[in-house]
Design a protein around this nucleic acid. Structure first.
Length: 218
DNA sequence: AGCACGATTAACT
DNA sequence: GTTAATCGTGCTC
């Protein structure tokens, strides 16, 4: 009995991971990575089911000097992940109940990351509906804690290398987003963070994302 | 050991 | 616009 032939590619787009973004994508200035993540897909392969959404809102957090960034406290058990290599998930807990998903940027030693703040759900809609069905569809994943709830992301995924070929969470290449679709402004929810950090234009989002991305098939 | 606060959300008035 | 929910983290005593 001969071995079956290797699959040259996955014929099923639901299982395709060939478009996983490489580590070099994340090893660049954090605001650039944040903007270029718009229009890509955040994918979670959860027990064989593919859950995903189009990334439509991000924020850049830029190291110890950035007083809005957790790394302002230096290297602690929580922030250690941000001091590691780019392309790794930094998932943290806040307000006693919410998980927020970030991706580490820049070379090891520079504690910077992009917070993913919103997605337009694309795949795994049945499961997302189970988790978010108490809310109208437009609100299923239009916030940083809503998207982690939608995709089933939590503490288990902190420090996960998104660039590893077998990682269950990754970013897949998506569509090219025209500059005219993108609004840039100050980050939100920063409370008493002082200037100039409070006003840095490090938030990026696609205007009318649901209409523009909702019909994409990926 | 104790404390104040948080890169939020949903349900109020 | 206001507020409760709920607990890990980092800082002070």
């Amino acid at each position: 009995m001969i071995s079956p032939p290797c699959q040259p590619f996955s014929p099923d787009p639901i299982l395709d991971t060939a478009s996983r973004l490489p580590r070099s994508f994340y090893n660049r200035p954090t605001p650039v990575v944040a903007q270029e993540l718009l229009g890509t897909r955040l994918v979670h392969m959860e027990q064989g089911v593919r859950l995903s959404g189009w990334i439509c809102e991000t924020e850049a957090y830029c190291g110890e000097e950035d007083l809005a960034c957790h790394a302002k406290a230096g290297r602690t058990p929580r922030t250690a992940v941000m001091y590691g290599p780019p392309g790794v998930a930094y998932v943290y807990f806040t307000y006693g109940m919410h998980w927020l998903f970030n991706i580490v940027t820049r070379p090891a030693g520079l504690p910077e990351a992009v917070l993913v703040r919103a997605i337009v759900p694309a795949e795994g809609l049945e499961i997302i509906a189970q988790r978010r069905g108490s809310q109208p569809r437009k609100r299923w994943a239009d916030g940083p804690a809503k998207l982690t709830q939608s995709l089933g992301i939590d503490r288990r995924h902190n420090n996960l290398d998104l660039c590893a070929s077998d990682a269950e969470i990754f970013i897949a290449a998506g569509i090219s987003v025209p500059d005219e679709w993108v609004t840039i402004g100050p980050r939100v929810g920063l409370g008493t963070t002082p200037e100039p950090w409070l006003s840095k234009p490090w938030r990026f989002f696609i205007e009318d994302a649901e209409a523009r991305l909702g019909g994409q098939t990926g």
